[in-house]
Amino acid sequence: MSAQDWNDQRIEVIIGALLRTGVLLAATVVLLGAIVYLVRHGGEIPNYAVFHREPDNLTSTTAILHGALGMSGRAIIQLGLLLLIATPVARVLFSAIAFALERDYLYVLITLIVLGILLYSLFESSG
């Protein structure tokens, strides 16, 4: 029991570091995108009162990567947000590996269910 506790504790510390790094990385990318976006579009008039879906080049993962490489501020912000969404997914993936190392197969299965739902959400692209 105490060996399991100790392992759990160590795993959680690693997970904590992973989460912090992911969030800081995502925030840095969003900030970079913000600078490009504000320099180019800071003088325009924003309009969010009427909802119309964001264009395809800001909703599909490949298009966002493409736009970010082309230094589009909005695409870089979306890339940062994708990194942010991916951070908890990485955490769940890491937990699955950790449970497997502990040979706790019931929890490997439970974790893979959560991972499956997250990956479906992250890569599903119909809309």
Partner: peptide
């Protein structure tokens, strides 16, 4: 965070996440 990530991916792909708006909200709240 895990719960929110499950819905945020779907919303992003469906065009509900506007970068110009999400940017100041995310940075400010964080």
């Amino acid at each position: 965070g895990v719960t929110a990530a499950a819905s945020a991916g779907l919303y992003l792909h469906r065009g509900y996440i506007a970068p110009g708006l999400a940017m100041p909200v995310m940075l400010g709240v964080l």
